[in-house]
Amino acid sequence: MSRIAAAVVLAGLLLIPPALDSYQVYLLSLTLVWSLLALSMGLLVGFVGEINFGQAGFVGIAAYVSSLLRIDFGISFWLAAPVALAAVVLVAALIGVITLRLRGPFFVLVTLAFGEIVRIVLANWQDVTNGPIGLRGIAPPEGLFGIDFAGKLAFYYLALVVTVATSVALAVIVRSRTGRLLVALREDELLAAFVGVAVMRQKVIGLCISAVVAGLGGVLIGPLLSVISPGQFTIFASVDMLVMVIVGGVGTLSGPLIGAVFLVYVPEVVQFAHEYRPVLMGALLILATMFLPGGLVGLMRAMVARGGVRPSVGAGGVRGG
């Protein structure tokens, strides 16, 4: 059932965009980038059982490192992107080793501080980052294998390939040894430790995978918007990702994707004044946590399947750590 749905959606995403105007194509690309970010947060909340308010810091590091390598050193996008991802993984591993032994609120606090530190560095390391103004005129990715990525549509397809490949890779990881151990950890960390799970190592691995996915979103943001600045990578962006995950559905991979679509298009359709967006996010966070523990995905499952369907490994809803 969900496979058919996924195939239909994918076919639509492949075939329809050439018929759309360039703003619509841009919106779709933006949704894809947000999908990556939401997936990265979803992995953390749903499988590692932690919230990272500094997730946007990972995104920012990837965006800045990749763009600076291109602007300052003339390195091609295709080389700069993997370097940026490696940098993000390194930072994530370091952060993880230091902080993941802290539980619940302590971990959250340190991630908050991490996010702030990244923002402060981006805004104040004037010589390198150009301060609060940020970087401008970031070019589309250079052509590769005869494919030109200069157009909005070509970039859209690039983002689509990255998002689909990431989703598939995460689906595999979630069912792998690491994914299953992470689910056990999320269910009961103390018990997991005493049946032999190396808790810290698994959590650091989980954080690193999540950081790679966030980094993928980060390297795409520069070319998509052509401008990056510290203001894009604040705790607000992290909370946006969190809202996408909670509204979409915790502990699933389709949840963050659906949440991203929902949260990019709803304000677009309703034309909320910009200043009301954070209030809306806060309200959605409370309402979804209280009344929609399975998120939109859980709601759809409940409507489609009336009994007989086994809950999947990850269908845990919001659980405590």
Partner: peptide, 20 residues
């Protein structure tokens, strides 16, 4: 009792082996 409540009986038993 302390088990992984959301996992099946078999998966509960698998976790200790997966951990190795």
């Amino acid at each position: 009792t302390r088990i992984f409540p959301g996992l099946s009986v078999e998966e509960n038993l698998r976790i200790p082996l997966l951990a190795r």
